[in-house]
Design a protein around this nucleic acid. Structure first.
Lengths: 345, 345
DNA sequence: GTGAAAGCGCTAACAA
DNA sequence: TTGTTAGCGCTTTCAC
């Protein structure tokens, strides 16, 4: 016999129906204290029959803990972050925590707004892909001892659990590949220098050039601001150089798209006239006329790890702080000169 | 003088500090009842000085309302949905509701899990991009009178607020464009027929062909399952036809990517050998060697409208049910034969 | 092992 | 206008 308005069934109702106290119902539900199998059975029946659904607010109020995790992303429309988000969501889905989402849209003020509201709410933890340096609020979070894990980008001036890609190594691999192909004029389109990700990628690039006694030409290093338009402008600038590069490493997926746009407009042939390596293994890479060689980042796992680590940290605040680095992988396709598939295949 | 552990400041503390009752503090906070400016001032000071942050759980428990909105998306990694999500988030950001995210990942069972948990939680409302037909739970939601708005895809067999694109018209526009360019063999790569979106797009396509006395060739209509692999297979199938089409309309962005993959592998020239129209104005469309002509859907607004409508409905449950259709727009670029930019520009 | 009862922080009747 | 107070649904002592 199904109940109609399951809305207002409380623990009291269940207790009455089962002929026990609310304390016993609670015990069955939380499973912490022991109860006789017989009582458990009766309670479970009552719960089913009445269609009882526990009230989360009451529970949170009573135990003094907010069972929510706030995720603040710098750009919810970038496949990199949505993949992270999907990873984190998959973990949270099977936890007792809910996923509260905030999109800062690359605007530091909005990031601040979201973080403040999460802090005010008293969320159990925060996953943050930083946008702008909001030192004050980062500090506040740490001071209040709200567990936080930074993904992809390290937080400046504060020390928190961090999960990133080994960006130095990633850039090294890519640059190394270009060098091994004989390139001497290798350009680099990077992001804002305050962001650890871009700094590290640039560093990896420089290291390899230096290691191979290749000169580092500052005109070949340009900031694309991690955005599509920026990538476009950067590539224009490079192509306008009196002595343009023979290859380019582009530090994120959106900039790569922007760069590709001008490459096609100017009928530059990839890889013959320009070899190209991008970042992120996005769905469109293989759909390009010349499939893109890229540094693939384990984005989904990045999100998974972040969620797992956060949950661990919530449970055990005294855990030593962790900096986890995930390895990227170079996926070689055709944009650096690899042979194109036989059309007949 | 800043307070350290702002964690445990309650309304009682504020009341004491300001020398008023908790009721007065509550009045100042909710702003419903009137209070003298002088009292308000004192309370606001106290709140600031003590760093008071209201306890959401207590509030929700007391008022018997859950200030959360659950968003269940069928694919959190598809730019179409993330754009919707961004739109919804932008509205919710300025509301009293939090955004709870669930990703069904195109799996009906997971969609069901998320919906159940949102229902059990008693969320104030739900935004759903349907994946699988979970009739039972849709019915339950309606029965429990939890406001729900369906986006992009209509829910089968139940009647709820719905916000979609005018898919019939969108497909008509695209097909019309192809016909006007002189195409007679126009192929269509669509999605699963249980989903309203694919049905309507197919319908629009057929209507135009019929209107122009063009025969509808069933071998030219193939199901790409709305996925990249599906798009690939579909395009292979079309290209393998003894009399392949001269143009193709592809009903979503992922399938377009898949199709492009085989088009490039087989060195088919766009638009000379095959004209192509896709759906969704994604960031990569303009980065293709031949920029893609597409039906651009107002995805961000779709999300915005959904959130707005949902909030409206929560406030006023007796509102008549609404089916809102947003207009799509044909963005003509080069994949149908438009002249490519002068490289010098 | 089980029940009675207190109380988490807040809002809304009701009084004053 | 303001204060007093009950109680939202739950968990957790504290008795038994």
């Amino acid at each position: 016999m199904k109940n109609r308005n399951t809305q207002n069934i409380t623990m009291k109702d269940v207790a009455d129906y089962a002929g026990v106290s609310t304390a016993s119902v609670s015990r069955v539900l939380t499973g912490k204290d022991s109860v006789t199998p017989e009582l458990r059975q009766r309670v479970e029946n009552a719960i089913r029959e009445l269609g009882y659904r526990p009230n989360r607010a009451a529970r949170e109020l009573r135990i003094g803990v907010v069972l929510k995790i706030g995720v603040v992303l710098s750009d919810i429309q970038n496949p990199f972050f949505t993949s992270c988000l999907a990873g984190a969501e998959s973990i949270l889905q099977n936890s007792e925590y809910e996923l509260l989402l905030g999109n800062s849209n690359e605007k530091p003020e909005i990031e601040k707004l979201h973080l403040s509201s999460f802090v005010n709410e008293g969320v159990a933890g925060i996953i943050l892909a930083m946008t702008g340096p909001n030192q004050d609020i980062y500090r506040k979070i740490i001071e209040l001892e709200i567990p936080i894990v930074a993904i992809d980008r390290e937080l400046p001036f504060v020390s928190v659990d961090t999960i990133t890609i080994d960006n130095i190594k990633a850039a090294r691999m890519a640059t190394e590949h270009l060098v091994s192909l004989g390139h001497k004029r290798i350009a680099f389109i990077g992001g804002p220098n305050q962001i650890s990700t871009s700094e590290h990628r640039l560093q990896g690039y420089r290291e390899v050039l230096t290691a191979h006694d290749l000169s580092i030409d500052p005109t070949l290093i340009v900031d694309g601001k991690f955005q599509q338009t920026g990538g476009r402008k950067a590539m224009e600038q490079l192509l306008d150089l009196p002595d343009p590069p023979t290859s380019v490493l582009i530090a994120n997926n959106l900039m790569t798209l922007g760069a590709l746009q001008v490459i096609h407009q100017r009928n530059v042939i990839i890889p013959d006239q320009l070899a190209l390596i991008g970042f992120d293994d996005t769905p469109w890479n293989i759909a390009m006329q010349t499939p893109l060689t890229v540094v693939a980042q384990p984005t989904y796992q990045l999100g998974e790890y972040a969620a797992k680590l956060l949950i661990e940290r919530i449970k055990n605040p005294d855990l030593p702080r962790q900096k986890i680095m995930l390895e990227a992988e170079l996926i070689i396709r055709e944009s650096c000169g690899f042979k194109k598939h036989n059309p007949a295949v």
